[in-house]
Write a protein that binds this DNA or RNA. Structure first.
Lengths: 158, 158
DNA sequence: TAATATCCCATGATATTCCATTTATAGAAT
DNA sequence: ATTCTATAAATGGAATATCATGGGATATTA
């Protein structure tokens, strides 16, 4: 299972093109390496990205609810209508739509940050701030994570 | 399960390459011997290293959180974006990213120190200092342990 | 026919691969 | 123990490949 990890900061050229880090392209599932899907991150001024397979799975799980409640209809509409699929050019670059660029405040450089099954694109300084914030919170709650891990592995006695 | 133990100091050549000790490479789990994953150690000026399998487990446990919660997003971003996966060249060497080299203060030589399930990479002198500190703490604790044992047996006069 | 997007190729920087040499390690023989 | 020998590991450098980036040319479309 390939994961998106690390962070890379790439230049947005004057035509609006950015290279998606080769590592991230390589981490896309087989058969889904031609494009990525992106949308506005919730509660963060960043662009959330994943592969098309991931979206298909999310959609399947939404349709699993039968019948769909009004809420679920609204939710899936809001989610799916906000998605953009971008295919790479021959050199692994994409052109991020203006709306998303503005949402994330990206101009000259874009920071690609791994999140496991997804990754995000940030304006570099904004990312640094977010990272500091997030790290503080992680330090606070690290104990909780350790507790869960120990429970999964260690508690398996019987 | 093989463990990372002992310590080795290797040279960083002018291209930034360092050999990962053969013993450490051999201790990587089967199927995960092509690379290691590293990140800034918390509360220490050192690089923390483990195998990719270890990371996949951590990521799985992260996904255990509510996928829509702010917490889950912050955790994954903070942890995963800070990771770097490095694959070995034909001779078992890696190139440590500049940012991590600077964080640990490594220039000419790097000390690999086993920690059991993980290992660390230090600037040699910094490691020596850390080791002295750690040994002092062990002494303290051992004294405390002896004290307890004596207290438990003590009344019985063996 | 502007304006925009796509394709193609060039380039410098960096990373990877490959091979040669040196150094360290382990075991056998003295 | 000490020396010798065979093997493995670490180190160095040159050749090669990959990647991010830039720009021109071609296609699309409004």
């Amino acid at each position: 299972m390939p994961l998106f990890m690390s962070k890379y900061t790439n230049k947005v050229d004057r035509k609006g093109r950015v290279s998606v880090p080769a590592q991230f392209r390589a981490a896309l599932p087989a058969g889904f390496q031609k494009s990525i899907v992106m949308y506005q991150a919730v509660n963060q001024e960043a662009i959330e990205c994943c592969d098309l397979l991931h979206i298909e799975k999310v959609n399947d799980s939404l349709e699993g609810f039968d019948p769909l409640s009004d809420e679920q209809h609204e939710f899936s509409l809001a989610l799916m209508s906000g998605l953009v699929e971008l295919t790479f050019d021959g050199n692994g670059r994409i052109i991020i739509p203006q709306e998303l660029m503005e949402y994330a405040g990206i101009t000259e450089y874009a920071t690609f940050a791994g999140k496991g099954k997804t990754f995000q694109i940030w304006e570099p300084e904004a990312f640094q701030h977010e990272l500091n914030k997030a790290r503080d919170k992680v330090k606070e709650k690290r104990a909780m994570l350790r507790f869960r891990q120990n429970n999964e592995n260690g508690g398996k006695g019987d």
